[in-house]
């Protein structure tokens, strides 16, 4: 129950670097939390595989859709790389709209591919044993986290387009983007790492 600002007192303004530092720290902490979510799935994967309860860890007909798996991974890695290029362009003071648009396109493509795979590309259902459970649970959870990445990239693109339009100077436009760019990069790299892990465990290893 705090009193509101009394007239006559003008609190000294905040250091503008603070928000930027916060975002990067927050992104790292969020990435570590996300890592623990997927650690739970990694544990489930190896635990159920080791137990092989009732011999139903992975019946022979349960095979993942390899084509979709590779395509999704490529989209995610491509989006991450495009975003990294956009960020470097930003740091060098160049325009970044094209690269950001590419990153957004690839990240949306990953979501669309995953949805198509669910709806038509699967040879097994969620009730197909331990592996099938982990596969569906893991990929759907990753999809949810990846939507966060899509949101971040879209926000960056929108901000870049707007500031390119409205900002008086290029410096101003860069300043509006830089802190979010660093934080988004941390998140995208974490997602990409988990995407590689997903592909290795769920698609590559038999």
């Amino acid at each position: 129950m705090s009193a509101s600002a009394a007239p006559g007192i003008v609190p000294e303004p905040e250091d503008s670097r603070l928000a930027a530092a916060n975002l990067v720290v927050g992104a790292r902490l969020f990435a570590s939390a996300m890592a623990f979510v997927f650690m739970a799935f990694v544990f489930a994967y190896f635990y159920l595989k080791a137990v092989d309860s009732n011999g139903l860890w992975r019946p022979s007909h349960v095979t993942p859709p390899q084509g979709y798996g590779i395509a999704i991974l490529v989209c995610i890695l491509g989006a991450t790389a495009a975003f990294e290029l956009a960020r470097r362009g930003l740091a060098a003071g160049a325009g970044s709209v094209a690269m950001l648009a590419l990153a957004l396109g690839l990240s949306v493509a990953a979501v669309v591919l995953q949805l198509i795979a669910y709806l038509g590309g699967m040879s097994f259902g969620a009730d197909g044993g331990g592996y099938a459970s982990v596969f569906y649970g893991w990929t759907a959870m990753f999809l949810a986290f990846w939507l966060g990445a899509v949101y971040s990239v879209e926000t960056m693109l929108a901000t870049a387009m707007r500031s390119a339009r409205e900002a008086a100077a290029a410096d101003e436009a860069v300043e509006a983007l830089q802190p979010s760019a660093d934080a988004t990069m941390v998140y995208l790299y974490s997602c990409a790492g988990i995407a590689v892990l997903t592909w290795v465990l769920l698609y590559l290893i038999k």
């Binding site: 623990f36 979510v37 997927f38 739970a40 799935f41 489930a44 635990y47 159920l48 137990v51 092989d52 309860s53 009732n54 011999g55 139903l56 860890w57 992975r58 259902g125 969620a126 009730d127 044993g129 331990g130 592996y131 099938a132 459970s133 982990v134 569906y136 649970g137 959870m141």
Partner: peptide, 24 residues
């Protein structure tokens, strides 16, 4: 993550926790 797995077991018939179908 654990609650999410339990929710999947209850809805889309995954078997994370059902020993009779590859879970534990």
């Amino acid at each position: 993550a654990a609650l999410y797995m339990a929710a999947l077991d209850r809805t889309v018939e995954t078997t994370f926790f059902l020993a009779s179908n590859g879970g534990s």
